[in-house]
Design a binder for these strands. Structure first.
Lengths: 241, 241
DNA sequence: AAAAATAAACGTAAAAATGACGTTTATAAT
DNA sequence: ATTATAAACGTCATTTTTACGTTTATTTTT
């Protein structure tokens, strides 16, 4: 491409997806492997990320990084924090890895998280794997910290904004929404109360469709209307300290 | 100091203070002035900020920047966003300014906001001035954007966390808290309902003191107990989408 | 074709929180 | 002693939340 990299600034991306079968909030991680003289030096997982180019905005870098990994564009993303501790890449393992790479003076990284529909990614085509956010494997660099901070931000944000629907298929059941909230927040929610609350929202729209291929009573499908939500100008300013 | 600056990373600080007299949420800005041949080239205000040193964490840079301006340490701060558009310093005025300075390749800035008590700052000692966040002067660089994004983040955050007390004196009246919420959120709140709600919180503690030197019925003074608040483990997970 | 199993969906009543008001009280200034 | 004024208290209707028990629709099994 011939674009000039800014060597000590990178963007790292925490990609979240929800598995409706296992009811697990997952993170997409990339295998990192290095051996020399039959000795395994590095064998773990890391986030996807790359240097910022000089002509790019940070958002563009994040978009590019996601697209290079998954092929996906126009996904929901949020820049949530910058990480710049001088020792953030100073673990023994990471130093070995960095030595082996060309340029890796990524002193400061701007971290984003993405919310997308698991089904949109074909794992066979890419060198990455989903892991439950509550059961992460060995993670390199300071990326475990980054993942956990992304997760905290997501927990906060899903309480006040309807970003949860970015993680669900366009047509979903009430119970799927409940499962997702329960997974993210690690809480139990009463189904009858949750159901009533959600169905009463004008932007939760019942479709003329039910689940198919399910081995019990098929559930009603719903969709989220961003248009209606936006029109309602949902800033309720409830002070809940 | 002889510390190595990271040239294209800086930290900028939005310093918020609340004026209980004018009931205004204010931002601390620094005068920027440059003239050549009797012609005023730059005459506006900017945030306080500086390059990151290589051995510092981002938090340390922010703390240092605030201390250098105000002498204050241990103030509440939040890193809220990084700004890295390639053209963020490309206004004509800013280019003139940058040309006149030594190193100013601050491509990416990590922005923090601070919440502090206005009275802790002696304006006579420093070259800065308070401005109402809703009535900003001419602001240089992309700092107006940064201020407004800090303000949005503050609006959000004060709804779910008791950070508002960082802006008030240790001993405050109920009405001062109300005034502050009203200023930040630009809303009117019913005093009787607000008062009831706040007084019922166990971490809002009535003191054996009243206002002094006030020309009407002096109000009861209260304090916020962070200890009690933390013990209550106030995560109520109210889904309010 | 009937019965069983199961997840979806509905309902109700008490408790808590909120919203919208009117009234009283304590203090400083007159 | 009186007045002016901001602080502080109180009440009732409405809305929201919490905590449960019951019914219904569909698939699978018999």
């Amino acid at each position: 491409m011939g674009q000039k990299k800014i060597l000590n600034i990178s963007v790292d991306c925490v990609v979240f997806g929800f598995d409706t079968v296992t009811k697990s909030l997952n993170v997409l991680l990339i295998k990192r492997y290095l051996e020399k003289n039959n000795k395994v030096l590095v064998n773990d997982y890391v986030l996807t990320g790359y240097h910022k180019y000089e002509e790019e905005t940070l958002d563009q870098t994040a978009t590019r990084v996601l697209e290079e990994l998954t092929g996906l564009k126009n996904q929901y993303k949020k820049q949530f924090k910058a990480f710049g501790d001088p020792d953030r890449l100073m673990n023994e393992k990471d130093l070995i890895w960095i030595k082996n790479e060309e340029f890796n003076l990524r002193t400061v990284t701007i971290a984003y998280y993405f919310l997308l529909k698991t089904d949109d990614i074909d794992l066979n085509k890419i060198d990455a794997k989903w892991f439950p956010v509550n059961k992460l494997p060995d993670v390199g660099f300071d990326h475990k910290k980054i993942i956990l901070e992304a997760y905290e931000d997501l927990k906060e944000k899903c309480l006040s904004e309807p970003i949860i629907f970015k993680l669900l298929p366009d047509k979903f059941t009430i119970n799927e929404v409940q499962d997702l909230y329960q997974s993210i927040l690690c809480i139990e929610i009463d189904n009858r109360n949750f159901r009533r609350k959600l169905i009463n929202k004008k932007y939760i729209i019942a479709l003329d469709e039910k689940q198919v291929g399910v081995s019990k009573k098929p559930a009603q499908l719903y969709m989220f209307s961003k248009d209606i939500y936006d029109k309602m100008f949902q800033k309720n300013y409830l002070i809940s300290i």
